[in-house]
Deep mutational scan, measured.
Amino acid sequence: KSPLTGYVRFMNERREQLRAKRPEVPFPEITRMLGNEWSKLPPEEKQRYLDEADRDKERYMKELEQY
């Protein structure tokens, strides 16, 4: 499975939280809201997602080498 970027990891995590709080909001609007939230997120909060993405990318590269 391909590695996910930090942005995609953030979107996946927050999308479920936002949909639970506001189920009436259409999917494209949720994506737009989360995109704005990501762009305003402080670098230190973004870093968690970026670090997870880096670890996932390393895992993926190792799997490719073994293939």
Results as ranks from 00 to 15, higher is better:
Leu4Pro: 09
Pro42Arg: 05
Leu41Lys: 04
Pro23Thr: 04
Glu65Gly: 11
Leu18Phe: 13
Val25Arg: 06
Ala53Arg: 06
Val8Ala: 14
Tyr49Met: 04
Glu29Ile: 00
Leu50Glu: 15
Gly6Val: 00
Glu16Trp: 00
Asp54Cys: 09
Glu65Gln: 07
Ser2Pro: 05
Phe27Leu: 15
Leu41Glu: 03
Phe10Lys: 04
Glu29Met: 05
Lys62Trp: 04
Arg32Asn: 06
Arg19Ser: 13
Glu16Leu: 04
Glu29Ala: 04
Ala53Thr: 12
Gln17Pro: 06
Tyr7Gln: 13
Lys21Phe: 03
Arg15Gln: 12
Lys46Trp: 00
Arg15Lys: 14
Glu24Gly: 14
Tyr60Gln: 13
Lys21Tyr: 04
Pro23Leu: 06
Ala53Phe: 00
Pro23Ser: 07
Leu50Gln: 15
Arg48Trp: 03
Asn12Thr: 10
Ser2Lys: 04
Lys21Arg: 12
Tyr60Lys: 11
Glu45Trp: 00
Pro3His: 13
Asp56Pro: 10
Arg32Trp: 03
Lys21Glu: 15
Glu63Ser: 12
Glu65His: 13
Pro3Ile: 06
Ile30Arg: 03
Ser2Val: 12
Glu45Ile: 08
Lys1Asn: 12
Arg55Thr: 13
Arg32Ile: 04
Gln47Gly: 06
Phe27Pro: 15
Val25His: 04
Thr31Gln: 14
Arg15Asp: 01
Met11Gln: 04
Glu45Gly: 05
Phe10Gln: 05
Asn12Cys: 05
Leu64Glu: 11
Arg9Tyr: 11
Ile30Ser: 05
Tyr7His: 00
Met33Thr: 12
Glu58Ile: 06
Arg48Gly: 05
Leu4Phe: 12
Glu45Tyr: 01
Leu4Gly: 02
Gln47Ala: 13
Leu4Met: 08
Gln17Met: 10
Asp54Gly: 08
Glu29Val: 04
Lys21Met: 14
Met11Asn: 03
Thr5His: 09
Glu13Val: 07
Thr31Cys: 12
Asp56Ser: 07
Pro3Trp: 11
Pro26Ser: 13
Lys57Trp: 03
Pro43Val: 09
Ile30Val: 10
Glu44Val: 07
Arg22Tyr: 15
Glu13Gly: 01
Pro28Thr: 15
Asp56Met: 03
Tyr49Lys: 03
Arg55Tyr: 11
Thr5Phe: 07
Glu45Ala: 09
Glu63Thr: 10
Trp38Arg: 01
Met33Ile: 00
Gln47Met: 06
Arg19Pro: 03
Thr31Arg: 07
Glu58Asp: 08
Tyr60Asn: 13
Gly6Leu: 00
Pro23Gly: 07
Val8Pro: 02
Pro3Arg: 07
Phe10Trp: 12
Asn12Asp: 06
Phe10His: 02
Arg32Tyr: 00
Glu45Phe: 01
Pro26Glu: 10
Tyr60Thr: 15
Phe27His: 14
Phe10Ile: 05
Pro28Val: 13
Ile30Ala: 10
Glu58Met: 03
Gln17Asn: 05
Arg19Val: 13
Arg59Cys: 07
Tyr49Glu: 09
Arg32Glu: 07
Arg22Cys: 15
Gln17Phe: 08
Met11Thr: 10
Glu63Cys: 07
Lys57Val: 06
Glu45Lys: 11
Thr31Tyr: 06
Lys21Asn: 12
Glu24His: 04
Arg14Cys: 01
Gln66Tyr: 09
Glu24Arg: 04
Pro26Leu: 00
Glu44His: 09
Val25Cys: 07
Ala20Asn: 11
Ser2Leu: 12
Arg55Pro: 11
Val8Gln: 15
Met11Ala: 11
Tyr7Phe: 10
Leu50Ala: 15
Lys1Ser: 03
Arg48Ala: 09
Val25Glu: 06
Glu58Cys: 05
Pro26Gln: 07
Ser2Cys: 14
Arg22Pro: 05
Met11Ser: 05
Leu4Ser: 13
Asn12Ala: 12
Met11Leu: 09
Lys57Asp: 12
Leu18Val: 07
Val25Pro: 04
Arg15Leu: 13
Lys62Pro: 11
Ser2His: 04
Glu24Val: 05
Lys21Leu: 14
Arg19Gln: 08
Pro42Asn: 04
Glu44Ala: 10
Arg14Ala: 03
Glu58Leu: 05
Ala53Lys: 00
Met61Tyr: 06
Lys46Phe: 00
Glu63Asn: 06
Glu16Ser: 07
Lys57Ile: 05
Pro42Ile: 00
Lys21Asp: 14
Leu41Val: 03
Ser2Met: 14
Lys62Arg: 07
Leu41Met: 05
Arg55His: 09
Arg22His: 15
Ile30Tyr: 03
Pro28Leu: 11
Glu65Thr: 08
Glu65Lys: 08
Asp51Asn: 09
Arg59His: 10
Met61Ile: 14
Thr5Val: 06
Arg15Ala: 12
Arg19Tyr: 06
Leu50Asp: 14
Arg55Met: 11
Ala53Pro: 09
Val8Cys: 07
Lys21Gly: 09
Pro23Asp: 01
Pro23Ala: 05
Arg32Ala: 08
Pro3Lys: 10
Pro42Glu: 00
Trp38Leu: 04
Leu41Trp: 00
Asn12Lys: 12
Leu41Thr: 01
Met61Gln: 11
Tyr67Cys: 07
Asn12Tyr: 05
Lys21Val: 12
Leu41Gly: 01
Tyr60Met: 14
Leu64Thr: 14
Pro28Cys: 13
Glu44Gln: 06
Pro43Leu: 04
Arg9Asn: 02
Met61Lys: 11
Met11Glu: 12
Arg19Met: 14
Val25Ile: 14
Lys57Ala: 08
Pro42Gln: 01
Leu4Gln: 12
Glu16Asp: 06
Leu41His: 00
Glu29Leu: 02
Glu45Asp: 05
Lys62Ala: 12
Asp54Gln: 09
Pro3Asn: 14
Arg15Phe: 11
Leu41Phe: 00
Pro42Asp: 07
Leu41Asp: 00
Pro43Gln: 10
Met33Val: 15
Glu29Thr: 03
Phe10Glu: 06
Glu13Arg: 03
Lys1Gln: 00
Arg22Val: 08
Leu18Arg: 00
Leu50Met: 14
Glu24Ser: 07
Glu13Asn: 02
Glu16Asn: 09
Tyr7Gly: 03
Pro23Arg: 02
Leu41Tyr: 00
Asp51Gly: 08
Lys46Met: 03
Asp56Trp: 01
Asn12Pro: 00
Lys1Leu: 03
Arg9Pro: 04
Phe27Gln: 14
Arg32Phe: 01
Pro43Met: 09
Pro23Trp: 00
Glu24Ala: 08
Glu65Arg: 08
Glu13Asp: 05
Leu18Trp: 05
Arg15Asn: 05
Glu58Arg: 10
Glu24Thr: 07
Glu24Leu: 09
Phe10Thr: 02
Glu24Asp: 12
Glu58Pro: 10
Asn12His: 05
Arg59Pro: 12
Gln17Lys: 10
Ala53Met: 02
Met11Val: 11
Arg48Asn: 04
Leu50Val: 14
Thr31Trp: 04
Glu45Cys: 01
Glu29Arg: 01
Ile30His: 03
Asp54Trp: 06
Leu4His: 09
Glu58Lys: 09
Asn36Asp: 07
Lys57Pro: 06
Arg22Gln: 13
Val25Ala: 09
Asp54His: 10
Glu24Ile: 04
Lys62Leu: 05
Arg14Val: 03
Gly6Cys: 15
Leu41Gln: 01
Arg55Ala: 11
Lys21His: 15
Tyr7Leu: 10
Val25Gly: 02
Arg59Lys: 12
Met11Pro: 00
Gln17Asp: 03
Arg14Leu: 02
Leu41Asn: 00
Arg59Glu: 13
Tyr60His: 14
Tyr49Ser: 02
Pro28Trp: 10
Phe10Asn: 05
Asp56Cys: 03
Thr31His: 08
Asp51Tyr: 15
Val25Met: 13
Leu18Glu: 12
Arg15Met: 09
Pro28Asn: 14
Phe10Gly: 05
Gly6Arg: 00
Glu29Asp: 04
Arg22Phe: 14
Glu29Gln: 09
Met61Phe: 07
Leu64Asp: 12
Pro42Leu: 01
Asp54Phe: 05
Leu50Cys: 15
Gln66Phe: 03
Met11Phe: 07
Arg14Pro: 00
Met61Val: 13
Asp54Met: 12
Glu63Trp: 03
Arg14Lys: 06
Pro28Phe: 07
Leu64Met: 12
Met61Asn: 14
Tyr7Ile: 11
Glu44Asp: 10
Leu4Glu: 15
Leu4Ile: 14
Glu16Gly: 05
Leu4Trp: 10
Tyr49Gly: 02
Pro42Phe: 00
Asp56Thr: 04
Leu4Lys: 13
Pro3Leu: 13
Thr5Gly: 07
Arg59Ala: 12
